[in-house]
Design a binder for these strands. Structure first.
Length: 845
DNA sequence: CTATTGCATGGATTG
DNA sequence: AATCCATGCAATAGA
């Protein structure tokens, strides 16, 4: 044991005091006990700088005081980490500065796995002698488990002349990427090198399987040597030095520079923390590349975001190690027919062979299916610089069915050094946040894996199954970006965001209300009357509309102060912020102290129904979009080939290029340039390939459409209605209705009425609405059917004459809480804030 | 006429 | 300000 000083004011045990392991503080973490006073000190995060003394930060469990790091004079330079533990600010800073020396040291050790070519490791502990590893760490290293892990990770660790020393190689990534770290990385790496016990804690907390034990140990090993005292999840990132031995990870530099940042943006940090807390094993994370290039820093956007599982799948059971190198989101140019994939300069220079001639060299790259492609790796002189491209990628891109926005990943299989190309479809992207949330809810299955090369067991790449090779299929994925503009990155948005935005817009239509105290002027344009307001529409607070047997309608909304649900008249417009005192309609509940009108169960049911409704609505919306697409596509053959017999003249006028599969705006192919009217080069009788294809496709679409319609009818016919009771109204049943194409209305109405009658007789099936069916509901709004008296509730309380269909919440057995009450969630919701009610927005359905 | 190639341009990003 | 890189486009090659 090294010298330690008990900071217990009443103790002051000298450094000679023997310290012993105490009891677990948390799962798997042991306190150190002072022999003299018995004080227990929780080992927290060590600061970055290790000295010959055990100078890690500790916090006294009893008094909360912190032992200060030996490298600084005062514990005032202590930063409490949100994720727990403390960080020595001073050390962090010094650590951030120190590594420069290593940059110049080609012998700097890099983290590696089985890469024979690589010198071994580790992270950002100061350059120290063997003894310089803190005693605590040494102690940790002494454990066979840790040692084994270390050995496994660094087979030649002791043979490289470093005698087990841990050399520094700062691999701190930008903090901004914290949120992209996998839980594993974050948890096991970020906890810092200082704390072996924490690994156990996190392992326990994160539910890491035993199967990952060794990897966890590996991480531990990394952690032991990685910069400590830093919550940065990348601190354990592995940097594998290139074979040339001349390069130091550029990421070190990246990380260093960022490391010096006083503090990450809160949001980012929060993301990281959130990630830390909740991310599952397959969180798509940005891994600082395993290798770097001197002086050049690889932008985090190119960091490979590959999950451990994916890596494992890629490498199979082979003894090979898959080293994720980088990835790139395909631009339109990349995915276009030109067949040139622009490579990020830094990546190209770091990971691909050095080329001195613009012609470059052929490069063999194996795809995830095991197929080997040969691309021309070359560059163009550009602005006194170079622009690297991979030429001839079209076949490969096509075989992977990639398009702009998708991502190609490049990895290397060591020790063979073979390049591996993977891909990830943008369509599979899932928002990080969502994933994190999901993972927070689901049991985390952690895979180990840090930012280092993954050592994997026997199997060959080519053995992996295609499906499994789709990285994005495997795990919740980090958000991918895609270009929605032609060029400007300013318009880069996440596909998920795009979806969300779209949905939000759609939902916004329900949320927007005419401005209060505003009377519209009526404007007539082409015989259509429009209400024109001087003021922009306003957002209303979200509410859920219900109806009761009496025929009255009401809306339920939640107080922004106390979160209690209050019943309000249906016809009022709520401000975005609404609290109980605003409840002028019910004086008994105009205070937050008034009890909730809904029992938890009622509320739960209401929300559930509402959620269901939103889901259905989303589904309908998607179907409508699909049908619109179909109609649009239909329009082409309808007009161009089959003449003007198209049933939907309106929809037939927009055969846009974007609707054509695999073609993009601007595409000049014969199909895409064809005028929407169909009066282009092709006559209705034309039998060229294009026209035949279009005809065939049209047929298929029509068949699908018909099938869908049939299915929907069948599905709807099977739906049940839910009843929901109210406290103050007896024997009221309602059912959610929802919208469906008019052609279904009659049939379904009959079916449902019949069903309702049957259910009325039974009085035992609360999930089935007894009420009649509203045939006059606005498809854009939710309807409520009240027993025997369909009631429509829409935003404007109008009967638009449009069709509606009973909305079946699935036949779950949850009956009404009160049979004498009938409220049904309505389509309408105002306010897009998050919460349960919003969950369905992201529902894939 | 179309496809390919090589370079130039300029918006985006970074330091 | 420097650099990157997505894309446009002219020149060239090929069908």
């Amino acid at each position: 044991m090294g010298s330690r000083v008990c900071t217990n004011d009443l103790c002051r045990a000298s450094s000679s005091q023997e310290w012993k392991k105490g009891w677990p503080l948390r799962s798997g973490e042991f306190a150190n006990l002072c022999d003299k006073c018995g004080s227990a000190y929780e080992q927290l995060v060590f600061c970055d700088t290790f000295h010959s003394k055990d100078t890690g930060w500790r916090e006294c469990i009893t008094c909360g005081k912190h032992l200060h790091c030996g490298c600084i004079a005062s514990s005032s330079l202590l930063e409490l980490l949100d994720s727990g533990g403390v960080k020595c600010i001073g050390c962090t800073k010094s650590s951030g500065l120190q590594p420069t020396s290593n940059d110049e040291n080609p012998k700097g050790l890099s983290m590696s796995t089985a890469n024979k070519n690589s010198e071994k490791l580790l992270t950002s502990v100061d350059k120290v002698d063997g003894d310089n590893v803190t005693e605590m760490n040494q102690e940790q290293l002494d454990s066979s488990e840790v040692r084994n892990g270390l050995k496994a990770l660094l087979p030649s660790h002791n043979d490289d002349g470093h005698g087990g020393q841990i050399k520094e190689e700062d691999v701190l990534p930008p903090r901004g990427e914290v949120g992209n770290m996998s839980s594993t990385n974050f948890n096991q790496v970020s906890i810092g090198p200082s704390d072996a016990a924490k690994v156990a804690i996190y392992k326990a907390n994160m539910g890491i399987k035993d199967v990952y034990e060794s990897l966890a140990q590996t991480n531990l090993t990394i952690a032991l040597a990685s910069p400590s005292g830093n919550s940065n999840p990348f601190s354990g990132a592995v940097v594998e030095e290139r074979e040339l031995g001349k390069t130091i990870s550029s990421f070190q530099q990246v990380s260093r520079s960022h490391h010096l940042l006083p503090k990450p943006p809160k949001s980012i940090l929060a993301t990281g923390l959130e990630t830390n807390a909740s991310m599952g094993p397959q969180m798509r994370v940005a891994r600082p590349p395993a290798e770097g290039r001197l002086k050049n820093q690889l932008l985090p956007r190119y960091w490979p975001r590959i999950t451990d599982q994916e890596l494992q799948l890629i490498s199979g059971d082979s003894n090979s190690t898959v080293v994720p190198l980088f990835e790139k989101v395909l631009s339109a140019s990349d995915a276009g027919r030109i067949g040139r994939l622009v490579l990020p300069k830094a990546c190209a220079e770091a990971y691909f062979p050095h080329i001195s001639q613009p012609e470059g060299v052929p490069l063999r790259i194996q795809d995830v299916k095991g197929k080997e492609w040969v691309f021309q790796f070359r560059f163009w002189p550009n602005n006194n610089s170079r622009m690297y491209v991979l030429e001839g990628v079209t076949p490969c891109i096509q075989s992977m069915q990639l398009q702009a926005g998708d991502t190609v990943t490049f990895s290397r299989i060591d020790p063979e050094g073979k390049l591996l190309m993977g891909f990830r479809k943008a369509s599979n992207a899932i928002a990080m946040q969502s994933s994190a949330h999901l993972n927070a809810l689901s049991k985390p299955l952690n895979s180990a894996g840090g930012d280092f090369s993954w050592h994997i067991m026997e199997k060959h790449v080519s053995d992996t199954k295609d499906g499994l090779l789709l990285p994005s299929m495997l795990a919740p994925e980090r958000k991918r970006s895609r270009n929605i503009g032609s060029k400007s990155k300013r318009f880069l948005i996440d596909s998920q965001d795009a979806m969300e935005l779209k949905l939000t817009w759609e939902e916004a239509q329900d949320m927007l209300r005419p401005p209060l105290s505003e009377k519209p002027s009526i404007l007539t344009i082409e015989d259509h009357e429009f209400e024109e307001y001087e003021e922009p529409p306003v957002f209303a607070k979200r509410s859920i509309f219900t109806a009761r047997s009496s025929g009255g309608q009401e809306q339920w909304t939640q107080c922004d102060g106390c979160s209690k649900w209050r019943k309000l008249p249906a016809d009022i417009l709520l401000p975005p912020k609404w609290t109980c005192p605003d409840n002028t309609w019910d004086h008994s509940r105009c205070s937050c102290s008034a009890p909730d009108e809904l029992s938890p169960r009622e509320l739960e049911y209401l929300l559930k129904l509402n959620k269901e409704f939103k889901k259905q609505r989303m589904l309908m919306s998607h179907r409508m979009v699909q049908e619109h697409d179909s109609a649009t596509l239909d329009a082409l053959p309808n007009t161009a080939v089959l003449g003007d017999n198209a049933s939907d003249p309106g929809g037939a006028s927009v055969a846009t290029t974007t609707k054509h599969p695999r073609h993009r705006p601007g595409c000049s192919c014969i199909v895409c340039i064809q005028p929407p009217s169909g009066k282009g080069k092709h006559k209705p009788t034309c039998t060229c390939n294009v026209c035949m294809t279009v005809k065939r496709r049209f047929k298929t679409l029509m068949m699908r459409k018909k099938k869908r319609q049939t299915e929907r009818e069948a599905e709807i016919a099977q739906r049940n209605h839910y009843l929901w009771g109210s406290k103050d109204e007896a024997e009221v049943d309602s059912t959610i209705t929802h919208h469906d194409p008019p052609e279904n209305k009659g049939i379904l109405a009959n079916e449902l009425q019949l069903r309702d009658q049957i259910n009325n007789l039974s009085h035992k099936t609360p999930e089935i609405g007894k009420g009649g069916l509203d045939l006059n509901s606005d498809p854009e709004h939710e309807n409520i059917c009240i027993k025997g008296q369909p009631v429509l509730i829409s935003e404007q309380q109008e009967s638009s004459g449009s069709q509606s269909l009973p909305q079946a919440t699935t036949g779950e057995s949850e009956g009404p809480v009160h049979e004498d009450h009938c409220v049904t969630p309505v389509v309408q919701e105002h306010d897009s804030r998050d919460g349960d009610l919003d969950n369905s927005r992201n529902d894939p359905s």
